[in-house]
Design a protein around this nucleic acid. Sequence first.
DNA 1: TTGAAAGCGCTAACAA
DNA 2: TTGTTAGCGCTTTCAA
Lengths: 334, 334
Amino acid sequence: MATIQDVAMKAGVSVATVSRVINQSNTVAPKSVNKVRKAIVELGYQPNFLARDLRRAETNRVLVLLQSISNPYYATIVKGIEDVAQKHNYSIMLCNTDSEIAREKNYIDLLGKKVVQGAIFLDTEMSSEEINLLEKNNHIVFCCEYRPGTQVSHVMIDNYNAARNMVSHLISQGHKKIALIAGDRHLASTNQRYQGYIDAMSDAGLAVEKQWIFWSEESSFKMGMRAVENFLYSKDHPTAVFAMSDILAIGAIRAVHTHGFRVPEDIAVAGFDGIEYSAASVPSLTTIVQPNYDMGGLAMEMLIRKMKDGERENKEVVLEHELVIRESTSRTIV
Amino acid sequence: MATIQDVAMKAGVSVATVSRVINQSNTVAPKSVNKVRKAIVELGYQPNFLARDLRRAETNRVLVLLQSISNPYYATIVKGIEDVAQKHNYSIMLCNTDSEIAREKNYIDLLGKKVVQGAIFLDTEMSSEEINLLEKNNHIVFCCEYRPGTQVSHVMIDNYNAARNMVSHLISQGHKKIALIAGDRHLASTNQRYQGYIDAMSDAGLAVEKQWIFWSEESSFKMGMRAVENFLYSKDHPTAVFAMSDILAIGAIRAVHTHGFRVPEDIAVAGFDGIEYSAASVPSLTTIVQPNYDMGGLAMEMLIRKMKDGERENKEVVLEHELVIRESTSRTIV
DNA sequence: TTGAAAGCGCTAACAA
DNA sequence: TTGTTAGCGCTTTCAA
């Protein structure tokens, strides 16, 4: 384990000079640069980042907190974050919280412990008070989600109008009885989408039956299936289902099939998010495509401005969504 | 930003005593413990881990390298790794390489730079020489995969027999013309599965046509679709397709449908991995379920033994797989 | 253009 | 039971 001392010794210069070479200072004589380079190669030297980071009081590392990487929705967002991070010489620590508060707390502590310089939340179990407190002393940004009652930068789509668009589409296909598979009530996006659904229905003069709404804390195939089983055997059952995530929607499609009905002929199903699988499922899934890559990238850029330029202001950035109509809601296509 | 100095000052003790309290040494007088605890709370002190890690020359952090979190196959493995890591007080750094050698190199350098103490590879672009070199000076373990020609601990299933089982199942369903969608040729698992396919066919006295084998470097829906399009319009087209991953298989199913054929009636499709989708797809997918959670956990345990106990020996651990038959290959079920 | 030396915040050996 | 102090490996200021 060669240290900078060893390199200095071998090259016959001081550690300061070695440090200058490593950090591309241009005040080192070419001859010295060569000697140092040679010594570095010969010793297989790599600088100890713990020492460097301690000394510089910066790690160029940020935390990215998500519920679980098993949710494909996150994949593209993370790619956007990573690409921007890399461009600015930051690296990211991806952390699965599994929605466990203790696990999340552990990771968040990495901020106070100086292991990371900032954090992007794709998801959190913290209360709005905790979030506001955290924001006071740390650089944080929310991506694709945020907690109502907090003042923290975030980048999102217009979830209210996206949901409205989707429900209007279903109505335009002739549906009058439209069920909703809703997500976690604590999330802003859930509430906004819920309101979009309610308003679209009421604007069309359609009633919303309580038994058509299924609340699912968790976005999983299983919950999508369970929701459909709930609807199918209720009296006056819905002819269309709007799920707040593609995963829920795909579970819903599966359950409709399992029970011997067809999508979209018997029941139409629509999702939300635009994950890759939405295009590959059978039938392909009508969904709201979120600009996930860009949202991730923008969130990272906002975070970098906070960390580098000390920007204190918190902003809301809203990006465009897109309604993509596919087989699962199309009466004309099989 | 309170430091240990500040706490010592406030509590009226030395930094050593504060350090002892933080690290649960039981040689501190209860009265001192209380004073220190109080000061810590009042100052909102958190130890600087960069300093601690530098001093201790350990970070209790390990690297987990994978190609992309968008592959749901990794989700359960990572969960297994994380749970074991947490139990032993390690935390993991999850890194997407995107199969880019430069990005991978960057992450691997974190070993030499002392940011992490070990690494688990779910995937790598490195050559066997590079891997062997890396293993000399670092603690590394391969999980669910390995590179032939390397001497590195790894945990896997018996890919050869798993593939054989699957192809035999297809043959038992009456198929004689069975196509293969193969993965990245550099991976051991690909070669083993390939050989299993070849041997199962030849044991049954069945011919393997060259045009029935589609090599796909990448495990994506798109490649699964492309493969099927290739097969569909070849003369003497196959009646069954064995894909080396569930993602490829689901893409294949999608393409069969798109072209107006049915699964499994016209073409049966089998996958490999046992990802969550495999049960939720329409039709549900016959696949080889790998014990992903256990494989991840075991890999982490092997790594911990190397890091903590300095175990040098490299082992191969082989776990059981399971053939799960579902709709996509079943003639009896619709 | 270079080197000496201070010091980042912590742990741990040693002495008291 | 406690405090003093060296030092982990690096960067950076200051002086030469």
